[in-house]
Amino acid sequence: MGCPQKPAPQRQAAGLEGFSSTLRRHGQSLTRSTCRILQVNVGLLCDLCCRHCHLMAGPDRHEIMSAETMQEVVDFARRGGFEIIDITGGAPELVPGIEGFVAALAEITPQLMLRSNLTALFSPEREKLLSTCVRHKVALVVSFPALREAQVAAQRGAGVWEKSLAMLHRLNELGYGREGSGLELHLAVNPGGAFLPANQAATEKRYRRELQARWGIVFNNLFALTNIPLGRFRRWLERSGNYEDYMEKLAAAFNPAVIAGLMCREQISVSWDGYVFDCDFHLAAGICQGEKSTHVRDLATAPPKGTPIATAEHCYACTAGAGFT
């Protein structure tokens, strides 16, 4: 992939105020605070083609992190002294060598997170990875977008519902989500269409009640995430005629109070080929960190406090309502 000097131009929503202008109008700016989180996107290969995916990940994608780049990321993690390392994708479980990568990073950071769509874990081939996660107490953040089969199928495909429930049961059996186990299990919920997520606290309460009562499933926390207008989700918005309205909803919900806690202020993202971005969404859009393309092997440490963060139209999704904090 690399990092282009200029991202490919995209059609802007008509009449939408530029995000940087909105920041200035509210007396805000977006700069990095202490960089304590390293997010690593290990590739676009996935067993699903979810409608809300900002990366357009899927079974036909071949971009995955090589063993050489994994080692360069491990070396950078040692230099950077990050408090949290967050492994994402695609489906990270499908990347060759992921077990060793997880084990190596777990030795470096106080907290390691692995994001999963649940179905990619649903295979005997993933038992080694599960054992590695249990041994190193890796926190799992898993996608479970709805409490009804039809809604899950509409967003993520047929057969996903059954596999997801079975995998949640399996994770609970291993101790994930259970009090006192030290094995954290967090659910990630995305809306199924062109609307903002419901209140996170209310959604978590409802999920906790229904999952426990109907299937005996427990978890630690729930994150209600806004769909990012990039990738496959943006294409769906444009095809369905919802793009302009959705961007207006995001802009209308702009909340200046969340700027200080935005995730991009405390993290740096690395792509499967080792290039550095402010966040996974800029990675998807091809907006590199800083003024030029930089590979992780060439960074002595994380960007210093006060480093400017690039902005774009999709940043409205991170500042709508409760924001990506």
Score class of each variant (00 low, 15 high):
residue 181 S to D: 02
residue 182 G to Q: 06
residue 182 G to W: 11
residue 183 L to D: 05
residue 183 L to H: 02
residue 186 H to D: 02
residue 187 L to D: 00
residue 188 A to S: 11
residue 189 V to F: 12
residue 191 P to A: 04
residue 193 G to K: 02
residue 193 G to D: 15
residue 196 L to G: 06
residue 196 L to V: 02
residue 198 A to Y: 08
residue 198 A to L: 08
residue 199 N to R: 13
residue 199 N to A: 14
residue 199 N to G: 12
residue 201 A to S: 08
residue 201 A to V: 12
residue 204 E to W: 03
residue 204 E to G: 09
residue 204 E to L: 00
residue 206 R to K: 09
residue 208 R to N: 02
residue 210 E to L: 13
residue 210 E to T: 11
residue 211 L to R: 04
residue 214 R to Y: 05
residue 215 W to V: 01
residue 216 G to F: 02
residue 216 G to R: 10
residue 217 I to H: 02
residue 217 I to E: 01
residue 218 V to W: 06
residue 218 V to T: 13
residue 221 N to P: 01
residue 224 A to R: 07
residue 224 A to T: 03
residue 226 T to E: 07
residue 227 N to E: 00
residue 227 N to Y: 10
residue 227 N to M: 03
residue 228 I to A: 05
residue 229 P to F: 14
residue 229 P to H: 11
residue 230 L to C: 10
residue 232 R to A: 11
residue 234 R to D: 08
residue 235 R to Y: 10
residue 237 L to Y: 07
residue 238 E to M: 15
residue 241 G to H: 07
residue 241 G to Q: 11
residue 242 N to E: 14
residue 243 Y to C: 09
residue 243 Y to E: 05
residue 244 E to Y: 05
residue 247 M to A: 01
residue 248 E to T: 08
residue 248 E to S: 08
residue 249 K to I: 00
residue 249 K to D: 07
residue 251 A to T: 04
residue 251 A to C: 08
residue 252 A to R: 14
residue 253 A to S: 12
residue 254 F to G: 03
residue 255 N to S: 13
residue 257 A to P: 01
residue 258 V to D: 01
residue 259 I to R: 12
residue 259 I to V: 15
residue 259 I to L: 15
residue 259 I to N: 10
residue 260 A to R: 13
residue 260 A to H: 12
residue 260 A to E: 08
residue 261 G to L: 00
residue 263 M to C: 14
residue 264 C to E: 14
residue 264 C to R: 15
residue 265 R to K: 14
residue 266 E to R: 14
residue 268 I to Q: 09
residue 268 I to M: 15
residue 269 S to K: 01
residue 270 V to T: 06
residue 271 S to Y: 14
residue 271 S to K: 07
residue 273 D to M: 10
residue 274 G to A: 03
residue 274 G to P: 06
residue 275 Y to F: 15
residue 275 Y to W: 15
residue 275 Y to I: 03
residue 276 V to P: 06
residue 276 V to W: 10
residue 277 F to A: 07
residue 278 D to C: 12
residue 280 D to M: 05
residue 281 F to E: 12
residue 282 H to D: 09
residue 282 H to C: 10
residue 283 L to M: 13
residue 284 A to I: 06
